[in-house]
Amino acid sequence: MPSSIDYRSTTAHPAQRVYATMVDKEVLEKRLVQMGGPGAALLEYEPDGEGVKYTLRHGIDQQDLPAMVTKLIPGGDVVIKRTETWAPSAQGGYDGVARVAIAGTPATAKATMRIADADGGSEFAVNIVVTVKVPIVGAKIEEAVGEQIKQLLAAETGFTLEQIQA
């Protein structure tokens, strides 16, 4: 059964500035260099009016993963492909969706994302649904993957905020 994870972050910066920085091609490339792992790359970047779609490849050293996850992956690093699509929302702010696939595994994730003005700044909210189709231990693996995703989101959010202030 899929696991649902929520992530929220607030900042004093307006939603438009957070969004513009977060989806900026150069910022994405810098972020991948800093925290994308082995083989990280921006595979696709397609601006579409005020929105954008991009695909990222992340790599994770197998030694950085929980043992229950590495048992499913035959040797080598983990390769994650993540596609995000963002657009302005009719209610103000920006809405996004993401799809994540982990090569060679029965693990996937889908996310809905929102950046909106709130309390003199903005809030970045994400709901992620992780699915690991493995009998008996799938839920435990989903939980471990979910924690990794939360850590990644926190690191990426911190990076974005540093770029705004740079």
Rank of each mutant, 00 (worst) to 15 (best):
P2R: 12
S4A: 14
D6G: 13
Y7C: 04
R8E: 05
T11K: 07
P14C: 04
P14H: 10
P14A: 13
Y19V: 01
V23K: 01
D24T: 01
K25S: 11
E26Q: 14
E26A: 14
L28P: 01
R31Q: 10
Q34E: 14
Q34P: 02
M35T: 12
M35I: 08
G37F: 09
L42N: 01
L43E: 15
Y45S: 00
E46S: 14
P47V: 11
D48S: 15
G49W: 09
E50W: 05
G51R: 09
V52H: 03
V52Y: 03
V52T: 05
Y54F: 11
Y54E: 02
Y54K: 06
Y54Q: 02
T55N: 02
D61L: 15
Q62K: 14
T70Q: 12
K71M: 13
L72A: 04
I73Y: 09
D77F: 12
V78N: 03
T83Q: 05
T83I: 07
P88M: 13
Q91H: 11
Q91Y: 08
G92I: 06
G93K: 08
Y94T: 02
G96A: 06
A98N: 07
R99G: 05
P106I: 11
A107E: 05
T108F: 10
T112M: 03
M113F: 01
M113C: 03
R114C: 04
D117Q: 00
D119R: 09
G120T: 01
N127E: 13
V129N: 03
T131S: 14
T131N: 08
I136P: 00
E142H: 05
E143N: 12
A144N: 07
A144T: 04
V145S: 01
V145I: 15
E147L: 14
E147Y: 09
Q151L: 12
L152C: 04
L153C: 05
L153H: 04
A154L: 04
G158D: 11
G158I: 06
F159E: 04
L161C: 01
L161A: 02
L161I: 06
I164F: 00
A166Q: 11
A166E: 10
